[in-house]
Design a protein around this nucleic acid. Structure first.
Length: 628
RNA sequence: GGACACGUGGCUCAGCUUGGAUAGAGCAAGCGCUUGCGGAGUGCUAGGUCGUCGGUUCAAAUCCGAUCGUGCCCGCCA
C-alpha cells in the first residue's frame, strides 16, 4: 500500500465518528496536507459547522479528541488547527515501511480504472504528403502518453494512426510529380517526407496561383485518385506509403509506437460509408433538403444556433466529416469489420508488432482493434466536427462518453522563430502552415537539441566514448522535447521558440533526468544491493520523509492522470519527485554516514526513488539515464 | 454576429473538476553555496488588488452572471 493507506484509515475512522453523531452522507475531504500542516488534512469541521451550530475550530477540537480513541495503525496523532482544519500526523516508521516496500514491486503505481477492458487511442493521423512539424509533435506525444497512462490504469490499449491518403493534399503532390516535373527521387538524399513537404507540396501550391489551368489538372487528379483502380491511385499509393515510412521514422525516434495503421482509401473502398449512410437515414439523423441554400444535400441539423452541416453534397459525394463517421463507428465496433490485417513491413524500435488494414485476404491474421471506449486526439480547432461525431455515436450505441475527443490547443511560432523562417509578424506569434512552408520540422528540432546535448555531455565527460554520448544525447533530447509538449495543460497554446527550446535548466526533462543520474551514481558507488530489509525508523530527517511521501503518492497521481486524460499530472509528479530528491541530496549524505544501518536505510530510499521515477518517466516515454 | 477556450509577479505556467489554512514553481534580476554521494544542482532576496464588476456563501483565484481583452472555429475545402 501507499500513502493512500493512511488516507483510507483516517477516512474510515472519521466516518465511524460521524456515526456517533448520527450523521451520514457527509462529503468531507481527506487529502494530502499542504506543507507545514501535518501529513493529512480534512475539511470535515467546516462541513459540520452549520449542523452542529459550533465553530469549525471547536468542532475540530472535539473530533480530534474523539479521534484519539480510534484504533490507529498509521496515524500518530491528530491536531485541531485554529483555522478549523483537522490535521493528522503519520507514524512514519510504519508508513515508510509500507511505501518503500511496495515501491520495489514492478506493479508499483498501478491502479484499476479500466477493469482490463479495451480502449482505443487514436493519434498522429498526419496527412501523408509532408514531414511532421512541431505542432504534430504535440498531438503525437499527448496521444502516446495518454495511451501509456491508460495501460497503467488497467486498460487494454490499442493505438491507431489514421492515414488520410486520399484527399486533396495528396492530389497536390501527385500533380507536382506527374505534371510539374518533380523527380521521384529527392535530391541529395533528402528525407522523402521533407522533400514532398518542403519542395513538391509548397512549390506546386505556389504554381496554382500563377497558372489557373492547373486547377482542372488538380480536380481530375483528385477524381482519379478516388477511383481505386486508376493508375493515379496506384501511383498515389506508392508515394503516400513512402512518405508514411519517413514519418514513422520520426515517430519512432520520439519513442512512439502504434498497433495499427488505418488507411482512409480503404475505408472509402470498403463500402462502410454506404452502410452508415443507410443507418443515418433510417435513424432520421440526417435530412434531405428540398429547398434553401443546401438544396439537394443531406444535412445534419445544427444544434441550437449552429448551422446545418452538409454530409452529402448535391452532386452525391460525401464531405470531409462524412468520411469520419464510418471510421468512428468502426472504432466503436458498431459495424461489421470489412478489413483484413497484415504486418507492416518494418519493425518498430520497441519490437511491438505494427498491423495495417488491407482489403485483400492474402497473408492476413485476424485482429480486433475495436473497443467500447475510443479516445481521439485531435487539435481543438476541430471541436465542432468532433462534437457532431460524438453526438452521432451516442445515438448509435446509447453509451455516454464512449467516443471521446481529446482536444488540445495548437503550437504557434514565436515572432523571433518566425523571423528566422523569413516571416516578419510584427512581434506577434505566427500560426504554422504546411502549404506556405512556414513550419519548424520535428526532425530538425530533434537534431538541433541532440547536437546541443552532445556538446554539453562532452563538456562534463571528456573521457566518454562517442557511442555512449550519442545514446545519452538521444535520451535527453527526446525527453526534453516530449516534456515541453506536455508540461502545460492541453488548453494552453504553446508558443514554440527555437532558442528557448534548447534550455536544459529548471522545469525541464534534463533537470529530472539529472536527479535520476545522481541517485544512480550513489547506488553504483555504494557497492551494495539495495534491500527493503532495513530499519525504517532511522529515516527521520525532514527531507527523507518528504521524499518518501512523494514516492508514496504515485498511484494517486496515476489515477488522477488517467481519469482526466492528463499527461501534465505525471510530468508534474516527476518534477516533484526530482525536487524532493535534490533537497534530500543537499541535506543528507548517504555514503558518508558512519552508521551502516542508517546507510542501508538511505540506500533503500534512494533506490525506491529511482525505481519510482523510472516508472513515472516511463509513462511520459522519457528514458532515465544512469549518466548524463 | 454566433460557439468554444484562455486571462494568476516582467515572462512562461501550476492551483480551479471536489470553495476553506500561508496563492506555488520555473525563467529573467540581485546576493550566496565546490577540502562535499556529479553545480544540467542548491540557499536566500525582491516581485502577485488571481482581467474588471456584481452575485451565492460563515468563507471565492476556485462556483454563478455580466463585462472587457486575446485566441480559435462557424465552407456543397480537407
Amino acid at each position: 500500500m501507499t500513502f493512500q493507506s493512511i488516507i483510507d484509515e483516517i477516512d474510515n475512522n472519521l466516518k465511524k465518528i460521524l456515526e456517533g453523531f448520527s450523521i451520514s452522507n457527509l462529503n468531507f475531504s481527506v487529502e494530502v496536507a499542504k506543507p507545514g500542516f501535518g501529513d493529512v488534512s480534512s475539511n470535515i469541521s467546516f462541513l459540520l459547522a452549520k449542523e452542529l451550530k459550533k465553530s469549525p475550530k471547536d468542532i475540530a477540537q472535539i473530533l480530534s479528541e474523539k479521534y484519539s480513541q480510534c484504533t490507529s495503525t498509521l496515524v500518530l496523532k491528530s491536531e485541531a488547527h485554529p483555522s478549523g482544519y483537522l490535521n493528522f500526523f503519520a507514524d512514519w516508521t510504519k508508513l515508510s515501511e509500507l511505501i518503500l516496500s511496495e515501491s520495489y514491486l514492478d506493479t508499483y503505481g498501478d491502479v484499476d480504472i479500466g477493469n482490463n477492458s479495451n480502449i482505443i487511442v487514436e493519434h498522429t493521423s498526419v496527412n501523408p504528403n509532408k514531414a511532421l512539424h512541431i505542432g504534430h509533435i504535440r498531438n503525437i506525444v499527448v496521444g502516446d502518453i495518454v495511451s501509456r497512462i491508460l495501460s497503467k490504469a488497467n486498460y487494454k490499449v490499442n493505438v491507431l494512426n489514421y492515414i488520410d491518403d486520399s484527399g486533396l493534399q495528396v492530389a497536390d503532390i501527385i500533380v507536382g510529380f506527374k505534371h510539374l516535373g518533380f523527380s521521384e527521387e529527392p535530391p541529395n538524399g533528402k528525407k522523402f517526407d521533407h522533400y514532398c513537404g518542403d519542395d513538391v507540396y509548397v512549390k506546386t501550391t505556389q504554381k496554382y496561383e500563377l497558372d489557373s489551368t492547373l486547377e482542372d489538372v488538380r480536380k481530375n487528379t483528385l477524381k482519379e485518385l478516388e477511383d481505386g483502380d486508376s493508375e493515379t491511385a496506384a501511383f498515389g499509393d506508392v508515394i503516400t506509403r513512402k512518405v508514411l515510412a519517413s514519418q514513422l521514422e520520426t515517430c519512432w525516434n520520439l519513442n512512439v509506437a502504434y498497433d495499427c495503421l488505418n488507411f482512409e482509401s480503404q475505408i472509402i473502398r470498403s463500402g462502410l460509408w454506404t452502410k452508415i449512410f443507410e443507418k443515418l437515414k433510417e435513424m432520421n439523423l440526417i435530412e434531405f433538403e428540398n429547398d434553401g441554400k443546401n438544396v439537394g444535400c443531406w444535412v445534419i441539423r445544427g444544434d441550437g444556433k449552429e448551422e446545418d452541416k452538409v454530409i452529402v453534397r448535391s452532386n452525391g459525394t460525401a464531405t470531409y466529416i462524412a468520411k469520419d463517421i464510418p471510421y468512428a463507428a468502426w472504432k466503436l465496433g458498431l459495424l461489421a469489420d470489412p478489413f483484413y490485417y497484415q504486418k507492416y513491413d518494418s519493425l518498430q524500435p520497441n519490437s511491438k508488432i505494427l498491423w495495417q488494414t488491407t482489403l485483400n485476404d492474402i497473408d492476413t491474421v485476424p485482429q480486433n482493434f475495436t473497443a467500447q471506449k475510443v479516445v481521439t486526439v485531435i487539435d481543438s480547432r476541430q471541436e465542432r466536427l468532433q462534437k457532431i461525431i460524438t453526438t452521432l455515436m451516442e445515438k448509435f450505441n446509447s453509451i455516454p462518453n464512449s467516443y471521446i475527443h481529446l482536444g488540445y490547443e495548437s503550437v504557434t511560432l514565436s515572432s523571433e522563430t518566425a523571423k528566422t523562417l523569413g516571416l516578419d509578424t510584427d512581434g506577434k506569434q505566427a500560426q504554422m502552415s504546411g502549404r506556405k512552408g512556414l513550419y519548424v520540422s520535428a526532425d530538425s528540432v530533434c537534431e538541433l537539441l541532440k547536437q546541443k546535448i552532445i556538446e554539453e555531455t562532452k563538456k562534463r565527460h571528456p573521457e566518454m566514448n562517442d557511442d555512449e554520448i550519442e545514446k545519452i544525447a538521444q535520451s535527453v533530447s527526446i525527453g526534453t522535447l516530449r516534456y515541453e509538449m506536455i508540461k502545460q495543460d492541453l488548453d494552453k497554446i504553446i508558443t514554440f521558440d527555437l532558442a528557448k527550446s534548447l534550455s536544459l535548466e529548471g522545469d525541464t526533462a534534463p533537470y529530472i533526468q539529472y536527479a535520476y543520474a545522481r541517485a544512480s551514481r550513489i547506488l553504483e558507488k555504494s557497492g551494495d544491493t539495495p534491500t527493503i530489509n532495513v530499519d525504517f525508523s532511522l529515516l527521520q530527517e525532514k527531507s527523507e520523509l518528504e521524499l518518501i511521501k512523494i514516492v508514496g503518492l504515485f498511484n494517486l497521481q496515476v489515477r488522477d492522470a488517467a481519469n482526466n486524460f492528463s499527461p501534465k499530472v505525471i510530468s508534474r509528479y516527476c518534477h516533484d519527485l526530482a525536487v524532493a530528491f535534490n533537497s534530500f541530496y543537499e541535506h543528507v549524505k548517504v555514503l558518508e554516514s558512519d552508521n551502516d544501518d542508517l546507510k542501508s536505510s538511505r540506500i533503500c530510499l534512494v533506490n525506491s526513488f529511482n525505481l519510482t521515477l523510472e516508472k513515472a518517466l516511463g509513462l511520459l516515454g522519457i528514458d532515465a539515464p544512469h549518466r548524463m
